[in-house]
């Protein structure tokens, strides 16, 4: 790691943020958002996942060469899910 790692305060703040997001998700799930239900829930999940990856796993501070594989996995998994969804929806 080239920069100072995250300290206790940063980690705790992110943790509280994650709890808040989870609670938001839970509360929203008992309201009928119509067709927005799925995108909203998954959007919140994506934000949480990004926070965990960036701060807890420390991707935000890692050297670029260390996270090539992580970025690649993110790109390739979105490509896989995206292209398969495209096929299933237009078949």
């Amino acid at each position: 790691m080239s920069r100072t790692p995250f300290g206790e305060q940063a980690i705790t703040r992110v943790f509280l943020g994650l709890l808040a997001l989870a609670t938001t998700s839970l509360v929203l799930s008992s309201h009928d958002l119509g067709s927005g239900q799925l995108p909203v829930a998954l959007g919140i999940a994506c934000i949480k996942a990004t926070l965990i990856a960036l701060v807890f796993i420390g991707v935000a501070l890692a050297r670029p060469s260390h996270i090539i594989a992580v970025i690649l996995a993110a790109v390739m998994s979105s490509a896989m899910i995206g292209l398969v969804i495209m096929d299933v929806m237009t078949r």
Partner: peptide
Amino acid sequence: MVFLASEAMLFAGMFT
């Protein structure tokens, strides 16, 4: 990190 990327792909297949 590389191993985590590999694990993530396993679950990406399931989410697909």
